[in-house]
Design a protein around this nucleic acid. Sequence first.
DNA 1: AAAAGAGCCAACCGCCCGCAG
DNA 2: GCTGCGGGCGGTTGGCTCTTT
Length: 332
Amino acid sequence: MGRAKCCDKEGLKKGPWTPEEDQKLLSCIEEHGCGSWRALPAKAGLHRCGKSCRLRWINYLRPDIKRGKFSLQEERTIIQLHALLGNRWSTIAAYLPSRTDNEIKNYWNSRLKKRLTKMGIDPMTHKPKITDNLNGAASSKYVANLSHMAEWESARLEAEARLVHRSKGSKLLFNNNKTHKNYQISQSPYYQLPCLDILKAWQRASTKLPTTNDISAILLNNSRNKNLESSIPSENLFVNNVPTTTKVGEDQNHPLSTINSCFEEPCSLQTDLPSFMQEFSGLFPEYTKISENYSTGQMDNMGSCSGDFEDNKFNWNNFTYLVTSPIGSPVF
DNA sequence: AAAAGAGCCAACCGCCCGCAG
DNA sequence: GCTGCGGGCGGTTGGCTCTTT
């Protein structure tokens, strides 16, 4: 069949954009919006293909684009999300306000990937790369070296974070006051990845993988902290045979006390976990089950709900390696 | 000071997918 | 159900800049 490429037309310009071209594109989008990219070059008087215009707009001209150095939080988010999602840059970009997928991709390929590799972490699997021919002693020495490097890296990142904090003062991370008449700036959802923090905490508290009971407990505790009304009567909810009506903190043996002790501030989440899980429900069906059961209250009187974390295909070990990286790890 | 190498990033390419006819 | 189109996405490239030798 051989579909004609959109840039096959003769006379179409390629390569770097000039300021004049940028201005034409901007004016055209302000006037007509960006409905049809194919029709846009003619309207704007540009000798470019629509695809090229779209790319220029999305990656450079859009007013809500944040430029410059990636923050510590952004770096961390990219690494976390990459561990979860792989090279799905557009999805990752959706969780980083004002950063384009192209920018994130470039940043990953040029910096983060190399940094992880240098530290002996496979950037694709996010697991340590320990060569097979290392014997036990050599292996532990290697791990010790990694740990040492991790300390340095952690200190460096913390110092960077402090500098950023000082220079920015209390500026909001997401600050977009620009308004334009003919296009809408899509405000991406921004999460602080609470579930990662929770799972990290969990892993510090326990060497076992979280069960559905545990996740239910976390969800319940989360909703309490957010002062949300739970659809599950808390007196009906038990975690490891401990009634969840026991206030966390009052009972040191309460499973949630263990979890909360891992947080500087007990489960101080910046968004509610069920929403986050729903956001990821397409990716991790098991999240959906938990999230749905949580919201509909379909749990038995022991706080269990259907959907076994240990049996599903989702690889907790891969996932938790990232979130279990101790403070001062090569990753964080 | 100059050449070589590395790093960075804007832009291109080709594939895929959803949708309309 | 098939086909073609438009848009979106991820991989890759090319050129500019910075750093090292």
